[in-house]
Design a protein around this nucleic acid. Structure first.
Length: 111
DNA sequence: AGAGTGACGGTTG
DNA sequence: TCAACCGCCACTC
């Protein structure tokens, strides 16, 4: 194990932790920032393991359509939506409204 | 070794 | 935006 994949996990976590309050980003954006734009799935996969780390605001990470595809992985059924709404993000039917308004791109913000 | 799976994304129609 | 298809990479059986 101690391979690069572990490093990959840490990179994803590092970016996820930097997501500001009330902001959201997409798996592809993180993947691209990490230099693995073709592996957006790997970001989701890494996020799946992130549930072990409470410090990872995975609820702020959605797919490019702003759809809460990962809400199924949370404890409740609409926990993810509740968390986002709690941060001021309008979510209807598992979909973020005005996504571009809340969207946070690590490439532009961090770079 | 081969096949199936997945918190995705881009392209095409 | 939606539907369908493909590519991508790591994991599991």
């Amino acid at each position: 194990m101690a391979t690069d994949n572990q490093n990959f996990f840490e990179r994803v976590y590092a970016v996820a932790k930097q997501i500001p309050y009330g902001r959201v980003t997409s798996y592809g954006a993180i993947a691209k920032y990490l230099g693995a734009a073709r592996s957006a799935r790997m970001v989701g996969w890494a996020m799946n393991a992130s549930h072990l780390k409470e410090e990872i605001p995975a609820h702020r990470v959605v797919n490019r359509k702003g759809l809460l595809t990962g809400k199924h992985h949370f404890d409740g059924t609409n926990l993810m939506q509740q968390l986002l709404e709690n941060e001021g993000v309008v979510v209807i039917n598992n979909q973020i409204q005005n996504l571009e308004t809340y969207f946070w791109d690590p490439i532009e913000e961090l770079e």
